[in-house]
Design a protein around this nucleic acid. Structure first.
Lengths: 393, 393
DNA sequence: GATATATTGTTGTTGTATCGAATAATATCA
DNA sequence: TGATATTATTCGATACAACAACAATATATC
């Protein structure tokens, strides 16, 4: 269909207009469903005839369904359009310890999950995923799957899509997409976990319609998803967002990256447990969840460890607020369970915002546990619903 | 022409394809001139007939001129296309002390400049600019001006385009565009100086075709222009890029913003002169240019002040490199005159880059003195030539 | 020197898409 | 019952890119 291009310039053809408007209509139905064709025409500015033509295609392609009639004080009753929730997507959330495979509808409502320990190497991971995906697809014969989205704690080369950096996963230089595509026949999208969370927030979260957002995932390390101008910022080599390795204290603890006092050595879960252990002179202390419980039970040292973590977290968040000026910063991770404890300390640091106007809001993710998985659905949807290459002229 | 839109959705019409391809052709001529229609067709992937049709419009509109014939080993001789350099744009560079009004052709080659002290308030500034612009336009009757681009050290609200923050200029909450548009009848574009430098680098600099770039302007303060995914990153409130006020040393010198130890209190020109003064126990010490000269003449304290500045500069640049992952970081400011002295210290800090792959290159701007003005031309061109994301390979 | 070949740029036709106006369908209100 | 309002479709006009054929113009080859 598309012409072969010597360069990678995307020229516009006759069908480009349809492509752009199709995405607009699809997104309007998504955000306003149930909605009539006439309303879409009014909101978008397209002609009613054009909307009819586009929705006809979208219904034929199985994206939309024309549902029940509406009711108005006057005139012909409108037929309401909504998204077809029959379409199924597969989301995979790879974490350092466990991996989740799940299926969802187009609205990121999940109806199935399976959990298993994350294999220690990329080869074993591919093997395991291939087996489980094939088994999953066989158990649902007749269902057509839309695509596979994968979230993992690592950085992906934007050109080659190869996983090139994942210290917490110990999978390195792994090309996951080709074997999984071959095994399933589906398109596979790969994205960093923090970036996936940012997409989840923008696509399905309360931060709807926000164009500038930063997501900070706090676990063993700290990952940052930067979403600016309505797009993910990946940087030249896919490494954008590694603010976790910004030096905050040159004399601080040594980090896995080799430097000292990186932000994540001072404000991650591991930082809090390390602080607790150092005060209690013990080797195998509590993990972070246990630390949260201890603090709840009134353990002074545990509370102090959390407080210290919160202060450093706040300082780093101020760096992001000042440097990137997002509309909001969303926090993901176990630390949000102790929000009433850490929020005041974080906000105290943020209150030293040196610029005019209000500082960006710091908010905990509504359902942080599911954020990555919801993001994987957005990854799959982006190709069909997402901004076309031409929208951001 | 365009339909009135209740929302701000930009739908595609019949003319959208032409609009997109027009920009592509215009940019290809800009980057490859002189170039034949056939070459544009080959590079872009458009049909030769389509290119002919588009170039016909562009020539009629005065953007292109069909120049001399080329020469080939075989076949009909191609007619070369180039940009029409008759079109004149006005660039204004407002700095804390002086303001420059200049005119240039479409290639950012300036043929006229006038310099005057920057007025102390926005009202006086508007008055002065109005007078000088009207005088300038009267002396060049017959010339049609394309538009006006303004660069200044401050932040502009992306929605209202009002200058809302400019501590070094002491112009506050000033709405510059309406009075200047009214006085000249031209479209006026306003942009932060660091952002303007980033545009200059991408449009006219050696960093051509780079999609992810960070520009750091070092003078009395530090300004950062963030250019990612082929666009300027302005943030939700236009404040993106204020990394100069990230806290680097909580016990550091007090900053104009009220906090302590902001990066710009440690790595700006002012930081170097303050350091020098503190060591020499003098009040009215040398300014930064004099400090550079002293260091050249072998003044040990001056050299040490520069070294200290360079180290802190390097640390901040590492923060930007790690956090944003640009292809390169471009430095603008007087400090680049002492590049052979400061570069080793900067690069030593950068060498502690904690991520795999090469660290972003740190390069001095080729003609930093003119960068802001070249950026103002890009501001004006952006509307017609559009995102340079399509420019080239 | 005549003919074949290669390349550029233009012209005419076709397919796709939006737009605008007219029309059919369907509800309420006087 | 007829006027009015609203939705959705149909049809002709227009704009654009793709494609193919062709004219123009150079060199290479016999």
């Amino acid at each position: 269909m598309r012409k072969i291009n010597l360069s990678n310039i995307q020229v516009a053809s006759s069908e480009t207009a349809r492509d752009i408007n199709r995405r607009i209509v699809l997104n309007l139905v998504r955000s306003r469903q149930p909605v009539s064709r006439a309303d879409i025409a009014r909101i978008s500015g397209l002609q009613r005839s054009t909307v009819s033509s586009i929705t006809e295609c979208l219904i034929a392609d199985g994206w939309l369904i024309a549902g029940l009639m509406g009711h108005l004080p006057r005139g012909r009753r409108p037929t309401f359009l909504r998204l077809n929730t029959e379409r199924v997507m597969i989301g995979i959330d790879i974490r350092p310890t466990k991996t989740i495979i799940a299926t969802s509808d187009i609205n990121a409502h999940f109806d199935y999950q399976e959990v298993f320990p994350t294999p220690p190497s990329a080869e074993e991971g591919i093997k395991e995923l291939t087996l489980r995906l094939q088994r999953l697809m066989q158990t649902r014969k007749g269902v057509t799957f839309e695509g596979i989205g994968i979230s993992l704690p690592g950085r992906i080369n934007p050109q080659t899509k190869v996983l090139c950096f994942s210290p917490n996963l110990h999978w390195q230089n792994a090309d996951l997409i080709p074997p999984l595509t071959q095994a399933t026949g589906l398109e596979v999208e790969l994205e960093n976990a923090a970036n996936a969370c940012a997409l989840a927030e923008v696509w399905f979260g309360p931060s709807d319609n926000i164009r500038d957002l930063v997501v900070v995932t706090v676990s063993e390390g700290i990952g940052i998803g930067v979403y600016m101008n309505g797009q993910l910022v990946r940087g030249a080599d896919g490494m954008a967002g590694e603010f976790g390795h910004v030096t905050m204290d040159p004399n601080g603890p040594i980090c896995g990256c080799g430097n000292r006092g990186c932000w994540e050595t001072l404000a991650s879960n591991r930082a809090a447990t390390r602080y607790y252990d150092s005060k209690n002179r013990q080797d195998a202390g509590p993990n972070f969840k246990e630390l949260l419980a201890l603090a709840d039970q009134g353990d002074v040292q545990a509370a102090k460890a959390l407080d210290t973590m919160a202060v450093y977290l706040g300082r780093g968040l101020r760096m992001l607020a000042v440097g990137l000026g997002p509309a909001a910063i969303v926090l993901v991770g176990e630390v949000t369970r102790a929000w009433s404890r850490v929020a005041p300390l974080i906000n105290k640091e943020i209150s030293a915002y040196p610029l005019p106007g209000p500082a960006p809001r710091i908010v905990p993710a509504v359902d942080g546990e599911m954020a990555r998985l919801r993001g994987t659905v957005a990854l799959v949807l982006q190709k069909h619903f997402g901004a076309s290459a031409f929208t951001d002229l």
